[in-house]
Write a protein that binds this DNA or RNA. Structure first.
Lengths: 339, 339
DNA sequence: ACCGCATCTGGGAGCGCTCCCAGACCCCGC
DNA sequence: GCGGGGTCTGGGAGCGCTCCCAGATGCGGT
């Protein structure tokens, strides 16, 4: 059962050419969308392709041509930090959608601690035309390293490790800012935050938004506890906040998953939500709508994230000019019960 | 910045041959681990490869050879059912680990409703040597379709759509069985279950385990409500169970994520856990340890799942004989507070 | 001594494309 | 009329490998 399908199945370009009554050069031009092909030939080729069910051989194109017709999706799990799951599938769906009909293969690579050098070598070795690097750990050196080799890359999530690496990210700052503005408009006086870790841009940007939102109303920005995107640490952070300010009346939590822990602690302490303490999360994950009470949160569109990431890379590969160095995607406040 | 890296960077096989003082045929043999190469030549080639930093050109190997040196990871999201996220990243990590050092590219494809036929054509078109099909929807026809074309595939999760398609799955049946045995040993008299949907093998297998566990003690297997792996539906199912049997004293919930909803309903109704009602979940997701109270659950090792999936496919591609048609991976009970 | 077989080696065809070059044809301006 | 473009076309080299074939060498059995 292992094979039976011989060498390379299906018709070759030669055959398409014969059926279409043109040369294989012309067929190649049609496939690659070049100009200088008459409408007549183009039609004939398309008909022949459809008739024969022709699909170009990827390896041959890559070998003969000057591009690899493939991009890599690199998932960089720097250190022990594990990729946040919900994030992943959503983005992936977007990437795939954007790639549809592009004759571009999507190669998957995970950056395991061991194979740092190998991976760079592989990526810059001409196997791919560019890479999408999804790295939640902001100081991961990989994006910069790759960018410096000249390989076109786009990073998902703002890299902290500087350089002029193009990236796509959700507008975490503005999302947080609007969350705070909502809390202010609800007349909350003492607004705390449970922030993400300091070495992740996503955490820091949300923290900045919170700070700005308070600063623009002349409020104090003291009530910050850093945490690490797990429910336990969210609970721990909430406990500390309550110790420091038992009379707080609002918390902006930098991730729904942490908000779950915070909610639990608040309720255990007898705070009513949102009456005593208003809570706003971030992400609008599946957890938000099913929390008790349902969580008001900041939504980011992960599929859009993936699409944009891919679009940006493909545009660069297509040689487009004047591309934005980076893109911030809008977030939106989803109002539920907790605030 | 778009290029500068010329056609195909790095040394060719010819150059390795020159440096090693052998012919390129011999280098090729070494790379592919063929026999009939003297130890002397082998060493020389390895040294030359290391010296030059040579890495074989994937496209050329594929074009010249009779295999594609790539496998596909197909994520089949049949219908509107969205791939369960936590599942995904874990499995992926395992797949990648198993592939390390194998000179095999991992291609990612998602089966979007639109492109069913294209995808089959692509997969059977010689671009890949085999495929890993991860499909949570048991009646998805894709695994069977692919298998019938003769393309070597392994399915992650037992397919319901019959055929003799090789698969790897967690031993959901035994996991559920042991969960029930635990509940029985705790002297619970009225053990209900919140099951998964009927069209997913993962749901049905866990249900069977529950049934068997009760049957072996002559208990009734009436208290079943089907649900769909979301917290809301878990809550709804719990409500219905309580309506039917307010005096139940244990629930086996077929997924942690549903257990969250069930826990909430039980507590809202004033049931103490585990005192009044014991709850056992499944998956040991991150949610389980942080639930209140921490959830006793059945653990499946997702990374192992991915590794096994990949191992099975690679073994088949290597022409290994006597491979098991399918593999069930052990699960283990994780005892926490809820039961 | 011979033949066989297993072991090791190099040469060269060719995988299916893309890209370059040369040429045919047209329409324009002078 | 003729030259200089732009448009369209086909032929063929060659991308970097693998695989086949032919040959060279060694070692056993008869």
């Amino acid at each position: 059962m292992t094979d039976g399908r011989s060498r390379h199945p299906g018709p070759r370009i030669e055959e398409v050419a014969r059926v279409a009554g043109v040369s294989k050069s012309t067929v190649s031009r049609v496939i690659n969308g070049e100009k200088y092909v008459s409408e007549r030939s183009r039609q004939a080729v398309h008909r022949a392709i459809a008739l024969l069910g022709y699909s170009p051989n990827h390896a041959a194109r890559t070998l003969a041509g000057s591009k690899a017709n493939a991009i890599a999706l690199v998932i960089s799990e720097q250190g022990s930090r594990v990729l946040a799951d919900p994030f992943f599938a959503g983005v992936l769906r977007g990437v795939h959608a954007e790639l549809a009909g592009q004759h571009v293969q999507l190669l998957l690579m995970m950056n395991q601690p061991a194979d740092g050098q190998d991976q760079v070598a592989y990526l810059t070795g001409g196997h791919v035309d560019g890479a999408l690097v999804v790295s939640l750990h902001g100081e991961d050196p990989l994006p910069r390293t790759l960018h410096e080799t000249g390989l076109p890359i786009v990073v998902g999530g703002r890299p902290l490790a500087g350089g002029a690496v193009p990236f796509v990210d959700s507008d975490n700052f503005t999302g947080a800012l609007e969350a705070v503005r909502l809390l202010v408009s609800l007349d909350r006086r003492k607004i705390a935050t449970i922030a993400g870790p300091r070495d992740m841009a996503v955490g820091m940007d949300r923290l900045s938004g919170w700070r700005c939102g308070l600063a623009e109303h002349g409020r104090s920005v003291d009530l910050v506890v850093h945490s690490d995107f797990t429910p336990e640490s969210g609970a721990g952070a909430m406990e500390e906040l309550l110790r420091r300010a038992p009379d707080l009346d609002a918390v902006f939590v930098a991730a729904d998953i942490m908000a779950l822990g915070a909610l639990r602690v608040l309720q255990a302490r007898g705070y009513r939500i949102p009456h005593d303490v208003a809570v706003v999360g971030f992400d609008d994950s599946v957890l938000a709508s099913t929390a008790v009470p349902p969580l008001t949160t900041v939504r980011q569109d992960l599929e859009q994230f993936g699409r944009t990431l891919t679009w940006r890379l493909l545009a660069e590969l297509a040689g487009e000019e004047k591309l934005p160095a980076s893109v911030l995607l809008p977030t939106s406040l989803v109002r539920r019960v907790s605030a």
